[in-house]
């Protein structure tokens, strides 16, 4: 999904981000902090933001790009409104989380790492979230759902689909 980052739409967030960058300036090894900040604020790290970081912290864009692509948490493309993370840690895997991921792939028509065309859902195969007592675990944004059977997953998915469908429609009406 090709998305262009329009700085005008993010004026306030960019200003705040510039403030954070100015505070980090001069510190040692602060690039990771800047990238965490950017990822949280914008949901991804577009070239425009990479250049801002480059100019303020005096680090070549090539190096920034290298660091972004090394770490799983930093992304170059925006994630969906709802990020569905299926834990593929060992405890969840031996309890059948691979089945859950297959079911979601079939239901949403996307593979891990992809986003649905309507921008609602991103599917990710996450590493251990550390809630192994609840295996298998699926996260939807900040919420954690544990001990999920395939049937539970079907129900959860249909609830989420309805919820985000309604939200998108509402946004369209308002627009």
């Amino acid at each position: 999904m090709a998305v262009t980052f329009n700085p005008k739409e993010h004026k306030e967030a960019l200003q705040a981000f510039q403030g954070d960058l100015d505070r980090l300036k001069g510190g040692r090894g602060v690039l990771m902090q800047a990238l965490h900040d950017a990822q949280t604020r914008f949901g991804y790290i577009p070239p425009y933001v990479q250049e801002m970081i480059s100019e303020t912290l005096d680090i070549p864009v090539s190096m920034i790009y290298g660091v972004i692509t090394f770490y799983a948490r930093f992304t170059l493309e925006p994630t969906g409104r709802c990020e569905i993370g299926v834990c593929l840690g060992t405890a969840c895997y031996v309890k059948g989380s691979a089945r859950l991921i297959e079911d979601i792939e079939n239901a949403l028509g996307i593979k891990p790492g992809q986003t649905t065309p309507d921008g609602n859902f991103t599917l990710t195969a996450t590493r251990c979230v550390g809630a192994c007592g609840l295996a298998p675990v699926v996260t939807t944004n900040q919420d954690v759902h544990g001990r999920l059977s395939r049937d539970d997953m079907r129900k959860l998915l249909s609830l989420l689909k309805d919820e985000y469908q309604a939200m998108t429609e509402k946004l369209e009406v308002e627009a």
Partner: peptide
């Protein structure tokens, strides 16, 4: 505090050091 960003290899001490320094964690 310094936050990792999802790279298993950063548990290796020299990779961890690279990551704290703000580089790729190799």
């Amino acid at each position: 505090l310094r936050l990792g960003a999802g790279a298993f290899v950063c548990g290796e001490e020299t990779a961890l050091i690279a990551s704290i320094e703000g580089h790729r964690g190799m």
